[in-house]
């Protein structure tokens, strides 16, 4: 799947709060809790079903100090992982 050129949206059934800069996600399907670090929280905030993943990577690259290639790989891996757990939906799935 080429996540880079896809828009991504949060699964609307996921309950979450951002507390002190870190998101806590609760999946109603299994009641599992997913705590996110600050970078992952920022990516989560940007998953608005409007921006494509490469646009999110650009924003994150401007805001956090890391190699662009690292940010790209980590962001795509993170989004794919969220999708595999049913926390987000990629593209028009």
């Amino acid at each position: 799947m080429n996540t880079l050129n896809k828009v991504v949206r949060k699964n609307e059934s996921i309950a979450y709060r951002i507390i002190e800069g870190e998101a806590l996600l609760v999946s109603p399907a299994d009641n599992l809790i997913y705590p996110l670090n600050p970078v992952a929280t920022r990516i989560w905030e940007l998953l608005d079903n409007k921006r494509e993943t490469h646009q999110i990577i650009s924003i994150v690259s401007e805001e956090f100090d890391a190699l662009p290639a690292t940010i790209q790989n980590d962001t795509v891996s993170f989004i794919d992982e969220l999708a595999s757990k049913g926390l987000v939906v990629i593209g028009n799935e």
Partner: peptide, 10 residues
Amino acid sequence: HGEAIRHFLP
């Protein structure tokens, strides 16, 4: 707060 809530939830 966040740490506490994370402990509470389960």
